[in-house]
Simulated assay, not measured.
Amino acid sequence: MSLHDDAVAVLKEYDDQRELRDAYVDHLSAHPDGMWKSCGEGHVTASALVVDPERDRVLLTLHRKMRMWLQMGGHCEPGDRTLADAALREATEESGITGLRLLRGGPVRLDRHETPCGWHLDVEYAALAPSGAVESISDESLDLRWFGYDAVPEIADTTVVRLLEATRARL
């Protein structure tokens, strides 16, 4: 199964945000290259909110290009077999934490937003940090920091807040 086929299957199983989900599926039907940054009409991306439920906190990155506190994530790569693989790879690369595992049940949310490289059709997961996880900043970040759940609305935009709310509901 190709990454494109996996994305379509994952999205068709996702029950929330039906209008946005259907727009993603329609986009992929119309664009065989819709998984890749080169797709001028927008492309599917994968992200993961890194959560430490033992300490009621999340790890956010101050994104170098966007200059915003965000979850880990980005573009799919040819080596990614599934959207979940892409989200986990991005979370691991950007957090420096080994041993992350995705929360069961598939994506937590969808979010469509414009970026300097075009429209991102982001499929958002949650990744659980192992006990005692130690983060390490990557070159894609200006900063990397743990925030208590209650602090997130003060420093992040509404898309991150909604992702955190949906993640906490799933936990």
Score class of each variant (00 low, 15 high):
45 T>F: 06
45 T>Q: 14
45 T>M: 12
46 A>S: 15
46 A>W: 09
47 S>T: 15
49 L>T: 14
49 L>I: 15
49 L>E: 02
50 V>H: 09
51 V>K: 05
51 V>W: 15
52 D>M: 04
52 D>H: 07
52 D>E: 13
53 P>W: 01
53 P>H: 01
53 P>M: 02
54 E>K: 07
54 E>N: 06
55 R>G: 05
55 R>D: 13
55 R>A: 14
55 R>W: 05
56 D>P: 03
56 D>E: 15
57 R>M: 11
57 R>Q: 15
57 R>C: 09
57 R>E: 14
57 R>P: 05
58 V>R: 02
59 L>P: 03
59 L>F: 06
60 L>I: 05
60 L>G: 01
61 T>I: 03
62 L>Y: 14
62 L>P: 03
63 H>V: 08
64 R>D: 09
65 K>C: 00
65 K>I: 05
66 M>A: 11
66 M>S: 05
67 R>H: 08
67 R>Q: 10
68 M>S: 00
68 M>V: 00
68 M>D: 00
69 W>M: 00
69 W>T: 00
69 W>R: 00
69 W>Q: 00
70 L>R: 10
70 L>H: 01
70 L>Q: 06
70 L>Y: 03
74 G>D: 06
75 H>R: 13
75 H>G: 12
79 G>F: 14
80 D>L: 08
81 R>N: 03
83 L>T: 07
83 L>D: 01
84 A>R: 09
85 D>F: 07
85 D>N: 08
86 A>C: 13
86 A>T: 13
87 A>S: 06
88 L>T: 12
88 L>V: 11
89 R>P: 01
90 E>Y: 11
90 E>T: 14
90 E>H: 15
91 A>I: 07
92 T>G: 10
92 T>M: 10
92 T>K: 04
93 E>A: 13
93 E>G: 07
93 E>R: 15
95 S>Y: 07
97 I>G: 04
99 G>M: 01
101 R>P: 02
103 L>M: 15
104 R>Y: 05
104 R>H: 10
104 R>Q: 12
104 R>F: 04
105 G>I: 11
106 G>E: 07
107 P>W: 12
108 V>A: 10
109 R>Y: 02
109 R>E: 08
109 R>W: 02
110 L>N: 08
112 R>N: 08
113 H>N: 08
114 E>S: 10
114 E>M: 11
115 T>K: 12
116 P>D: 13
119 W>M: 14
121 L>K: 13
121 L>S: 09
121 L>N: 11
121 L>H: 15
122 D>V: 04
122 D>R: 14
123 V>S: 11
123 V>G: 11
125 Y>F: 15
125 Y>W: 10
125 Y>V: 02
127 A>F: 00
128 L>C: 01
131 S>Q: 02
131 S>D: 01
132 G>I: 06
133 A>C: 02
133 A>S: 04
133 A>N: 02
133 A>T: 01
134 V>T: 13
134 V>C: 06
134 V>K: 14
134 V>N: 04
135 E>T: 09
136 S>P: 00
136 S>G: 07
136 S>E: 09
136 S>C: 03
137 I>R: 15
138 S>Q: 09
138 S>F: 08
139 D>L: 11
